[in-house]
Simulated assay, not measured.
Amino acid sequence: MPTALEASPGERLRTLRDLLGLTGSDLNRMTGVSQSWISQVETNAREPSEDRLRLIAEATDTPLSFFFVKPSSVPLDSLRFRKMASASRTLTRRISAFYGESFRVTEEVTSNARYPSPPIPYTTCSELTQEDIEDLADQTRVALRLAPDKPIPHLTRALERAGVAVAPIVLPDPAGDTATSTSKHFGVSYWAGIGETALIGYFPGQQGDRDRFTLAHELGHLVLHTFRPRAVDPEGEANRFAGALLMPRNRAEIDITDRLTLEGYARLKAAWGMSIQALILRGAAVGNLGESRKKSLYVQVSQRGWRKKEPVTVGQEAPLLLWTLLTKLYGDKPYLPASERLSIQPAVLGSIAPRPATAATASGVRQGTEANVVQFKRRSSAPPDGPPSAVAH
């Protein structure tokens, strides 16, 4: 029997089905391989024959080596999902498979390109106060080489420069040529610790502020929970960390007051790239908003229909690191040669590391410049004290 770190063709076959969203019946129709054979191989009840694995590989446009490559080093039961309670188990399993393959590819690509591992802080304290979380968010800004009291113009690029890879999760269909995504999940992340690979996966949405909060939230898990896996309230801690990272305490205490109207929050959203609802929570976290004022603001948000769609558009960010490393290693058209070397389906690789022409450019990221900042769409009037200037990188 293979060890936990060796490839089991049966387990890899199940991973492939999860990855592509295929049932045993689907695979039978595509290849003629019987469902009983598939089931027996996946449960290690019989040894797979290479000719049938090859049929499956050809039908799914997957390199045959996929079935024999060592799986990801990520213990999938340790993954922390930011998701809705109604997310199905089947979809969550599929996302786990996608993230596991994304991590495997990221480990190999960053290692081959000798890209540095992230120098992000961490904590081992059994319990964390709000002050502890604020301090760790400040330390993280230092690690990401960000100004201590200004907006983060492009969080994705800051993460990537620091060695934290970012991958959008877009699930290929069974044919591998179109993609679907889910609104039930938001993000997933893993970091094994000092000197190891870190990857944040997120589901790109239609609102840039929500994507940025998801990235900050997942970064919070890396910082707060890598060495504290049994924290009592990991999601609440990660949310508070995200608010503290995106808007440092000293600015929140100045800019968010109990007299600030929703119009004022909209102006702050334009400056800081945070949703109005996240800003209200941030004001409460630093002690500037009491419970009654917070509830009143949320009632007003609901009355205006802003719960799901707020005013002020925050530009969407797009990752670039994995694509850049792929082209460095495999040329300007990397998907086909890289898919063979990395033992991954080309369409899946394209989802993990999207081509900038269809990702970064389309989402408003300026290409060909060092700045690469997302432009928040601002209203004509400025927030209190004027909008902070963008951070130069």
Rank of each mutant, 00 (worst) to 15 (best):
F241D: 03
L279R: 04
V312D: 01
K269S: 08
L325C: 02
K309R: 15
R304M: 13
Q277N: 13
P248F: 01
Y265E: 06
D209Y: 09
L245H: 00
R210A: 04
K295W: 07
L281E: 12
G208S: 02
Y330E: 06
A271L: 08
E263Y: 10
T324V: 15
Y330G: 03
Y298P: 01
G273D: 01
G290P: 05
E237Q: 13
V232A: 11
V299H: 10
L281S: 13
Q277V: 13
A284G: 12
K294I: 08
T257Y: 07
Q300D: 13
E235D: 11
K294L: 10
P319R: 13
P234R: 08
Q277P: 13
L325I: 05
L321W: 03
M247S: 02
L329E: 00
L320T: 12
K309A: 14
T327Y: 03
V299W: 10
D209E: 11
F241G: 00
L322D: 04
D332S: 11
K295L: 08
F227Y: 15
L322A: 07
R212S: 05
Q300L: 10
K309L: 15
P248H: 03
T214V: 11
L321K: 00
R249V: 11
V312I: 15
W323D: 10
Y298G: 08
T327I: 09
R228V: 08
F203L: 15
L325P: 00
F203Y: 03
R304Y: 06
R307G: 08
S296Q: 13
A242N: 06
T327R: 15
G315Y: 01
K294Q: 10
